[in-house]
Simulated assay, not measured.
Amino acid sequence: MSCPDCFSGSVKDGKPRGEVVKLHGLDSYVTVPADGRTPKAIIVIIPDAFGWDFVNNRLLADHYADRGDYKVYLPEFMCGKAAPEWMIDAMRGLINGNVLAKPFYLARAMTGFVPFIMTNRIGKSHPRVKEFFEELRKAEGADAKIAAAGFCWGGKHVLLMSHNVTVDVNGKAAPLIDVGFTGHPSFMEVPADVADTMTVPVAFAIGELDSGLPANKVAEIKKIVEAKPAPVTGEVVVYKGAGHGFCVRADSTLNDVTKQALAAEEQCINWFNKHFGF
């Protein structure tokens, strides 16, 4: 399930420096290392509910490019129906505002939520995501290094692609992704999403206070993925005091949460580097 925290958080200051191109049928934000270094591999970000043009997601793509020397793609998977940025203010009013104003904020939030969920519920959106990765793998080749980083809504898609999902590339069955990372995934089914059919190693960054992933579920995820044999062994890191959405929408006025968001960035890059042998 999605929750109010899926649409809450903070908008970052900054100007993304990548470019927008058409990639495998989708508009995509593309960024590479700022200092001109040759990218070592590809990361595809599957974003949270706020989508590909949300400034936080584009800045995160820039950070991954610079910190890990990756080419980073952030595609438009949501058919123009991402949650609008103003929903952050609407949710803030709904959660913290005056009681008499709450019906207004609820109505406003629903005008953003309903189009998002109607277009982007997992069963309807995953074929779009999967098709992009199939075309990417065919274009880049069976031996290309491709990683996926999914957040909130996007985390579920990473998990679905980790379950022995392949595409034919010149007669060779190639995985859609080689390695995955998910920050505070939504819509998770435990244990099904981390079952024995996982053939791709996935790391998790989870906030201790994530209402969608209570401690008993996190412990179950950790027990399953960290017990898998190499090279499918996973990783679960729980960030103390952090809530849902901290990887992308951390409140910059709260120093500890900002540090945890940066630590999750480092976890992701280190995880990909480890599995690609960098």
Rank of each mutant, 00 (worst) to 15 (best):
V248L: 11
R249K: 13
V237H: 13
R249Q: 12
V218F: 08
A219F: 01
S252H: 13
R249H: 08
G234F: 06
E226M: 07
K228I: 05
E226N: 08
D251W: 00
K240M: 14
A242R: 09
Y239P: 12
H244D: 11
V218W: 03
K228Q: 13
R249S: 03
A227R: 10
V238H: 09
I221F: 04
N216I: 06
D251M: 01
G245P: 08
H244W: 09
G241C: 00
R249L: 04
A242F: 09
S252V: 14
G241R: 14
G243E: 10
A250I: 04
P231D: 13
E220R: 02
H244G: 07
R249P: 03
A227Q: 05
R249F: 06
G234R: 07
V237F: 10
G243F: 02
I221Y: 05
A250M: 09
K222P: 02
V218C: 06
K228E: 04
V225M: 11
G234C: 07
R249M: 10
K217G: 01
V225Q: 05
V237A: 15
V248I: 15
E235V: 09
V238A: 10
G241D: 14
G234I: 00
K228W: 01
E235C: 14
D251R: 00
I224T: 06
A219S: 05
V237T: 15
A227F: 04
T233L: 03
G243Y: 03
I224F: 04
V232P: 00
A219M: 03
D251L: 00
T233S: 07
T233R: 13
P229I: 11
G234A: 07
A227D: 13
E220A: 07
G241E: 12
G245C: 03
V238M: 01
K223I: 03
E226A: 00
C247S: 15
I221S: 09
F246L: 12
E235F: 02
T233Q: 15
K228N: 02
N216L: 15
G243H: 03
V218L: 04
H244M: 09
I221K: 02
K228D: 01
K217Q: 13
F246I: 11
K217Y: 01
G245A: 06
A227W: 04
V232C: 10
A242S: 14
K240S: 15
S252K: 13
G241V: 12
V236T: 06
V248A: 14
K217P: 01
V225T: 06
I224S: 06
N216Y: 10
